[in-house]
């Protein structure tokens, strides 16, 4: 008869990932690469936004894009045409990226010579927020057609973001979207989040957004 004994563990499941993520951040700091984790619902405008950022910052910063999306071959091509390097990560059909997968991606990418790497996380608003990827900053894109009450429905996502982009503001007149309410809901969940309304189509708001990126990347890599 086997003698089983009870061993108290009392450890959070995310603990080892959190430690791993902290380590990855140190490695990124040491090699001078600023990694931005970008989250959103599908179709919020990540690719369109990134193309514009690449064209605006491409002369100052060496930019790379890591795609975690399941079938985003088209995106990789769009990014290459805009003038940045990109790779496809292998998530094995998982609904989120953890720090180990992100490190693997950074290694495969050979990101040492890159100043700014954007990780396009898997397109959902629940799971990615729970797993720290090891990125230096977290951003999300919320687009006008998704509704101003999104921060109420996905509080965790908003609470982990350093910056929230509200995209597609060119279509504001056609939607019942209350910008002030939306900002208030975001601030309720996360008073420190920076909120930048943009239109990836017209370029509105991109001076402020690229300035944020420029400053954050400079502060990180100096």
């Amino acid at each position: 008869m086997k003698e089983f004994k009870v061993i108290e563990v009392k450890r959070s499941i995310l603990e080892d990932n959190d430690a791993d993520a902290a380590k990855l951040r140190e490695e990124l700091k040491a090699q001078g690469t600023f990694l931005l984790n970008l989250m959103s619902s599908p179709g919020a405008g990540k690719t369109t936004m990134l193309k514009r950022v690449i064209s605006m910052l491409g002369d100052e910063l060496k930019i790379g894009i890591m795609e975690a999306d399941i079938d985003s071959d088209v995106d990789a091509q769009a990014i290459a045409e805009a003038g940045a390097r990109s790779i496809q990560l292998h998530t094995g059909g998982m609904c989120h990226l953890d720090a180990a997968m992100t490190r693997q991606g950074i290694l495969e990418f050979g990101a040492e010579d890159l100043d700014l790497v954007v990780l396009e996380n898997v397109g959902n608003l629940v799971c990615p927020a729970e797993f720290d990827t090891g990125a230096c900053r977290n951003a999300m894109i919320l687009s006008v057609p998704e509704g101003d009450d999104k921060p109420l429905k996905y509080p965790l996502m908003f609470s982990v973001c350093d910056v929230v982009l509200i995209n597609k503001i060119d279509v504001l007149p056609y939607f019942d979207f209350d910008m002030e309410k939306c900002k208030e809901y975001i601030q309720m969940r996360n008073p420190k989040a920076k909120i930048i309304p943009i239109s990836a189509r017209t370029g509105e708001g991109f001076m402020e957004w690229t300035q944020w990126l420029r400053e954050e990347a400079a502060a990180w890599t100096k």
Binding site: E3, F4, V6, I7, E8, V9, R11, S12, I13, L156
Partner: peptide
């Protein structure tokens, strides 16, 4: 929103 391993029984 906890998600913890409380204990394990093992030998």
């Amino acid at each position: 929103n906890e998600f913890r391993i409380k204990e394990i029984s093992a030998c």
